[in-house]
Amino acid sequence: MPPPFLAGVELTGNLALRPALEEDEAFIQLLYSLSRDDLRLMPGDSHFVESLIAMQYRAQRQSYSASYPRAYHLIVEKQGQQIGRILVDFSQDRMHLIDINLMPEARGQGSGTAAIKALQGAAAKAGSRLTLSTYHSNPGAKRLYLTLGFKVEQSDELTEKMAWPSL
């Protein structure tokens, strides 16, 4: 069953969003690990690098939990198979996309676009804005967000804050 803010919002491409369960933890950890090829490029012992990735994962979870204690943890499924996860915080005045991550083989297939469009639909239905941040080092994500109608509202050395609809 989807979270209440997604009730009645259509998803395309045989996709579903559902709340993450305890049994999804191994998948979520694997998904994070697969997104950290940057750390695997470091010289050194592979066991050390894998332990560093695991430590980074735990730090990210703690940071998200502290910053967004009421965030929804969602699993993205395609035809019943886990392909990604989304963290989204929903308050009265805005919905904030904290993080979205898809399995490498699911990227570039339209699943991320469909999931973000579903969040846009939920935000529009609630009369809220959908906000997010993206790193300057991820131009592909920025391109996707701009294509989906997001506008850059603020920029710093590392990130750009974007919103839909923009003010």
Rank of each mutant, 00 (worst) to 15 (best):
K125R: 12
D38C: 01
N14K: 12
L87W: 09
M42N: 07
V88H: 00
V152N: 05
L148V: 06
K117Y: 09
P3A: 13
L132A: 10
Q79I: 15
L21M: 09
S65H: 14
R58M: 10
I28D: 00
S46K: 08
E157F: 07
E22R: 01
L34W: 12
G140N: 13
Q29R: 15
V49D: 01
A122R: 07
L11I: 13
P43T: 05
L87F: 06
Y72T: 08
R94Y: 14
Q92E: 15
M162V: 13
S155G: 00
E25T: 06
M103W: 14
A123N: 12
E157N: 07
I83T: 05
A26R: 06
P3Q: 05
H73E: 15
R143V: 09
A7H: 04
E23N: 07
S91P: 04
Q81A: 11
Q120F: 11
A163Q: 05
T12K: 10
G44E: 01
K125S: 15
D45K: 05
L52G: 01
G44F: 03
R70M: 08
V152I: 14
S35N: 13
L119D: 02
G149S: 07
Y72G: 00
F27I: 06
K161Y: 14
K117R: 14
S128R: 15
I86R: 03
I28E: 07
G121V: 13
I28W: 14
Q154I: 01
E105G: 04
I53Q: 00
S35H: 12
M1L: 06
S155N: 11
L87N: 03
E160G: 00
L30Y: 04
T131G: 03
Q60I: 02
Q56I: 07
K142M: 15
S35Q: 12
L146S: 08
R40A: 00
A118H: 06
M55L: 11
R143G: 04
S33Q: 09
Q92A: 15
L132D: 04
Y135L: 09
A71I: 02
G8E: 08
L41F: 01
I116R: 03
T113H: 08
A114D: 11
N138V: 07
E157Y: 02
R143Y: 03
G80H: 09
G140T: 12
Q62H: 12
M1R: 08
T131W: 10
L52N: 02
P43E: 08
K78I: 14
W164N: 03
M42W: 05
F27Q: 00
L158F: 10
Q120G: 06
R129C: 15
K125T: 10
D37H: 12
V152T: 14
I75P: 00
L39G: 01
S67L: 14
A118K: 12
R143F: 13
E10K: 14
Y64N: 00
E153I: 15
Y68Q: 05
R107W: 09
L17K: 00
E23Q: 08
N14Y: 05
A118Y: 07
Q29M: 04
